[in-house]
Measured scan of single mutants.
Amino acid sequence: PAHPYDRLKTTSTDPVSDIDVTRREAYLSSEEFKEKFGMTKEAFYKLPKWKQNKFKMAVQLF
Rank of each mutant, 00 (worst) to 15 (best):
G38H: 13
T22D: 07
L47S: 02
T13F: 06
K49T: 11
Q60Y: 15
P48V: 00
H3C: 15
F44S: 00
K36P: 00
L61Q: 03
R7I: 13
A26Q: 15
N53I: 14
Y5E: 07
F55D: 02
K49Y: 07
T13V: 09
K46F: 10
I19L: 05
K46H: 14
E42T: 10
M39C: 08
L47V: 01
F55S: 08
P4Q: 05
K56S: 02
E31M: 09
R7P: 12
K9R: 01
S12R: 02
K34H: 15
E35V: 10
R24A: 04
F44V: 02
Q52W: 01
T13S: 09
M57G: 04
Y45H: 05
A26E: 12
M39G: 00
E25P: 11
V59E: 06
K51I: 15
F44Q: 00
V59A: 09
A43T: 13
T10P: 02
K41W: 11
Q60E: 14
P48E: 03
A26P: 04
T22S: 13
H3V: 12
G38T: 02
K54G: 11
M57L: 12
F37A: 00
K49L: 15
E25A: 02
A43I: 10
K34W: 15
K9S: 12
K41M: 09
D14I: 05
D6F: 01
K49R: 13
V21P: 10
K41Y: 08
S29I: 01
D20S: 03
Y45D: 03
T40F: 03
F55W: 12
K51V: 14
V16Q: 02
R7E: 12
R24G: 04
S12T: 10
A2C: 15
K36W: 12
P4A: 11
R23Q: 11
R24V: 05
R23N: 06
K36R: 12
A58F: 07
S30F: 12
K36N: 10
R24D: 04
T11Q: 07
N53F: 04
L8R: 00
K49A: 12
T13W: 05
P15H: 03
K54D: 09
F37H: 01
T11E: 10
F37I: 05
V21C: 10
K34V: 13
K34A: 15
V59Q: 08
E42S: 10
L61G: 09
L47H: 05
T40I: 05
P1R: 07
Y5C: 13
V16W: 05
K41P: 07
K34S: 14
S12H: 05
M57V: 12
K56I: 04
F37S: 00
K41Q: 12
A43V: 10
Q52C: 01
A26K: 10
R23A: 07
L28M: 07
K41H: 09
L61I: 05
S12Q: 06
Y5F: 08
S30P: 14
T22P: 02
P1G: 13
Q52A: 04
V21D: 11
F55R: 08
S12C: 14
Q52L: 01
S29F: 05
R23M: 10
Y45C: 07
L47A: 01
Y27H: 09
T22V: 04
Y27G: 04
E35D: 10
P1Q: 14
S17P: 15
T40H: 10
